[in-house]
Design a protein around this nucleic acid. Structure first.
Length: 481
RNA sequence: GCUGAGGUGGCAGAAUGGUUAAUGCGUCGGACUGCAGAUCCGAUUCCUGGGGGUUCGAUUCCCUCCCUCAGCUCCA
């Protein structure tokens, strides 16, 4: 197991990561609220923790990665009401879309997606315990957490209860002892999905599902909790209060990781501001590789400012240059000379390849510095152009060595893998080759109008042509990029 | 107001108590090309918010001020 450090929001310092029960790592990410389509801010969190899980697995940790699905909550009910759809049906629809999007983006590291509604017994048990311990109280069929009874409430976000502005954004509810008390169980409202409970029919509050799930799956304490920065308060404070109040053990989580928000012209991207860019739109236009690259090209904790018409376009340029460097090697590898023949690599390059891989692991072991890793990949790409004149003459073994840094990127970042590049091969390749042959003949006879027409049409289909002397290469690019 | 995160070249964005502060994008020049793009070579040597302090040395540590963003019970 490789040693690495992570910034922990609670202690506000970067610390060496030590699992509670090595080599196991419990990773919980809260997030999926399927009341609407995902936007590119959601994608940032998903890709960030995908890379975290990939890196940890590479380093020998056994990660159990859980992401919950809040398939019942206020917004779902509101949206369902607007369109006359059952909230649970609406949730299912968005969940399917989310899974499809994650698959396209290469986010396949989540082991288990528990649904809130599948954990109602655990939720009820937790609420019952909190009431028994005097930490929660009933009022008008609802149950609230009495935050005055939990002194650590506010520690994660550094909030002092007295300093909070109660009711600043939400009207105080009748029945609460204090405005800051949060709801654990919401009394039924006509027309809403409800579950039976000792306090009367109702449904779970927003925060309780997470701890019901994690206490059940991980026990009273676990290793890593991730989410967007905007969930730090009050949601994560509530989680701590619920879980630690129930189990009596502390801390609930050893390392809290909070992802910097995606902003647009300096403002947070959110539905309420109305400045959202759909995740699937971005992936459609630029391709999954570019979108992943865009996220990982900055440190996960920094805010990332999205500029329409520029951010993903810039990412495309940078992404393409690395992707074609990797693609060139991969296509040479697929047609490498038979085993035991071909040129052998210079020893210095072999050393450099190994060093690069080591440095890549090192970069990620410093609080997942993916930007540093990408800089190293550019450095490696530069070394390749300087040191490798003709990759197609190299032995397969040598090519494998040269590919090692890109293989690392495919494994950990989910970028520049074999499936990312479309150089040659396959039935698409045959069709494209026919078009390229026709263009070559047109150029030979000086019919450049025809040659350019073919080039333009291929480009419209997302196929970019690159002339290198007498040979022509092609690659797939995002149709809009 | 309170809490937290930040202010780095034209732009995006790293790092570090110490030689010329990564990397990418963009721009300019050159090579190649029928042209364009891509690629390659070179340039973009006067960039760390203001002011103090600690230090032989600060962008990094401390103080202070200014500014930006986020959170203060919908939020990834």
């Amino acid at each position: 197991m490789r040693r690495f450090e992570v910034y922990d929001t609670l202690s506000r310092e970067t610390r060496l990561f030590v699992p509670i029960v090595p080599p196991k790592v419990g990773l919980f990410v809260c997030g999926l609220t399927p009341y609407d389509n995902a936007h590119i801010g959601h994608g940032k969190v998903a890709v960030t923790f995908d890379v975290v899980a990939r890196a940890l697995r590479r380093w020998g940790y056994r990660v159990f990665y859980v992401q919950n699905v809040t398939n019942i909550d206020d917004r779902l009910i509101a949206r369902g009401g607007e369109s006359g759809t059952d909230p649970l049906v609406l949730a299912d629809r968005h969940i399917s879309a989310w899974f499809a999007e994650m698959d396209r983006l290469g986010v396949r590291s989540v082991n288990y997606y528990p649904y809130a509604t599948d954990y109602v017994p655990e939720i009820l048990a937790q609420i019952r315990t909190l009431i028994e311990r005097g930490l929660a109280y009933e009022a008008r069929g609802s149950v609230y957490y009495d935050i005055a009874k939990f002194p650590r409430y506010g520690a994660l976000s550094g909030q002092k209860l007295e300093a909070l502005r109660p009711g600043a954004r939400v009207a105080p509810e009748p029945g609460k002892r204090a405005p800051g008390d949060f709801v654990l169980w919401k009394a039924a409202t006509p027309g809403e999905p409800t579950w039976e409970a000792p306090w009367g029919p109702g449904r779970p509050g927003w925060h309780i599902e997470d701890t019901a799930i994690t206490v059940r799956l991980f026990g009273p304490r676990y290793d890593l909790h991730g989410a967007g920065l905007d969930l730090k308060f009050p949601h994560h404070e509530a989680e701590i209060a619920q879980a630690e109040g129930t189990t009596g053990e502390s801390p609930l989580v050893n390392f809290w990781m909070h992802v910097g928000l995606l902003t647009m012209k300096g403002e947070k991207m959110s539905k309420s501001v109305g400045n959202v860019v759909g995740l699937s739109d971005a992936v459609d236009r630029f391709g999954p590789g570019v979108v992943r690259f865009y996220y990982l090209n900055a440190h996960y904790r920094s805010p990332l400012d999205f500029v329409a018409g520029r951010s993903l376009e810039e990412a495309t340029e940078a992404y393409n240059s690395l992707d074609s460097a990797a693609g060139r090697l991969r296509s040479a590898r697929s047609s490498a000379p038979p085993e035991g023949s071909g040129d052998v690599l210079e020893a210095s390059l072999e050393t450099a390849a190994n060093d690069t891989v080591e440095h890549l692991d090192e970069a990620l072991s410093h609080d997942f510095n993916t930007r540093e890793a990408i800089a190293l990949l550019f450095g490696w790409s530069k070394q390749l152009t300087e040191g490798v004149a003709g990759p197609e003459r190299l032995s397969g073994e040598s090519l494998d060595t040269l590919l090692a840094p890109f293989d690392w990127a495919a494994e950990v970042l989910g970028l520049f893998g074999a499936t990312d590049s479309s150089d040659g091969g396959g039935s698409l390749g045959e069709v494209v080759q026919i078009a390229l042959d026709a263009r070559a003949r047109a150029r030979e006879r000086g019919d450049f109008a025809e040659a350019d027409r073919i080039r333009t049409e291929l480009a419209a289909s997302g196929i970019r042509i690159e002339d290198h002397g007498t040979t022509t290469r092609w690659r797939l690019v995002g149709s809009g990029g």
